[in-house]
Amino acid sequence: MHSILKSKVAEWRNSNYKSEYPVISEIFNFNYDSETQTLRFLRKAQFEALKAYWYLRLVEKTPHIFDLYKKLFQGEKLLDALNIKLADEDWRKIAISGGGLNSIFKKIETDDNFVRTHRLEAFKETLTLTYPSYILALAMGAGKTILIGTIIATEFAMALEYPEVTDFVKNALVFAPGKTILGALKEISDVPYDKILPERLYKEFITTVKFTYTRDGEKDIPIIRGSSFNIVVTNTEKIRIQKKSITKSLIKDLFADPSQEDEVKEAIANQRLQTIASLPNLAIFSDEAHHTYGQKLGKELKRVRQTVDYLAENTNVLIVVNT
């Protein structure tokens, strides 16, 4: 998949990033100085990931990753690409049942024993997601925070340039799995966006974007519900579906009857989440992809996945990006 996608992105580059939205070409050409053949600010790995992201968004129309595999591979090549290796006995059973490839995928969806036997947990995860979710895997220290900020900035710039189009991201939620990583992600507001966006796009972006970092002790997230062009950076613990993290000091004036404590705690925990769910055209960025996905997640990390699923069910999540 990687080599095919890389080739297709190169073809797209050779067409000067042809699409229905020519501003993307303006953004890419701004980032690359053709005279010196050097990048203005982004590192090569970041720029390549950005191009791959926008190829998937504009050319492939933001497909679910499984649909993309089905488009690029057929027959046994599809199984090979997905690393699905079946024994002869499994093939015989499928042949006897009259099933083809679709019956294999159906079995993966419904038969956990089959999934465990063939170690297909990760693929089942991909198969059953209801929203497009991509992994942009950069090496440690390659600047993932800057890549996240760059994707968001270019999405917002496109949304501002084409206000009549409903397919561009207008809000971003950036998850961090721990306080240490949250500290690093706070650099997202310090990214030199003027080196990523052409001047006219940068001016509109920087005067429109609102950065919000969730803080301990807040009952809600301080953003206007239903508004646009918010970047919310948070620990998953502060907005996920749970109530035990709500302290008594936060709710001391909200109930008189001790029996109401659990009910009030749950309401406060969900209040933050519902504020995020009110934001239209949402993209979710999960730092450290392994914290978010996989059937072997621990109890705590499963709640993170539940939070993403909740948001996907309650607002129009356009895309989830894991780095």
Rank of each mutant, 00 (worst) to 15 (best):
H2M: 08
K8V: 04
E11T: 06
R13A: 04
R13Y: 10
R13V: 14
N16W: 08
K18L: 12
K18Q: 14
K18H: 03
E20T: 06
P22A: 14
N29C: 13
F30K: 08
N31A: 11
T38L: 03
R40A: 15
A45C: 13
Y53D: 04
L58F: 09
T62R: 06
P63Q: 10
L68H: 06
F73K: 11
F73G: 00
Q74H: 08
L78E: 03
K85E: 12
D88E: 12
E89Y: 10
E89N: 09
K93F: 08
I96Y: 15
S97I: 02
K106E: 10
K106W: 11
D111C: 02
D112F: 04
V115K: 02
F123I: 06
K124E: 06
T130K: 07
P132K: 02
L136Q: 06
L138A: 15
M140H: 15
T145L: 07
L147S: 03
I152A: 01
M158V: 12
Y162M: 05
P163H: 13
V165K: 09
T166H: 13
A172P: 01
I181G: 03
A184Y: 09
L185F: 14
I188Q: 03
I188D: 00
E199N: 05
Y202H: 11
Y202K: 09
T208D: 10
F211N: 14
I223K: 05
F229V: 01
N235S: 09
T236P: 01
K238V: 05
R240G: 05
I241E: 03
K248C: 07
L254Y: 04
I268C: 08
N270D: 06
N270C: 08
Q271N: 08
L273F: 07
Q274V: 09
T275F: 01
T275W: 04
I276V: 11
A277C: 07
A289K: 05
H290R: 11
Q295I: 11
K299H: 15
E300W: 09
T307E: 07
Y310A: 10
L311Y: 09
E313D: 10
T315L: 06
N316V: 05
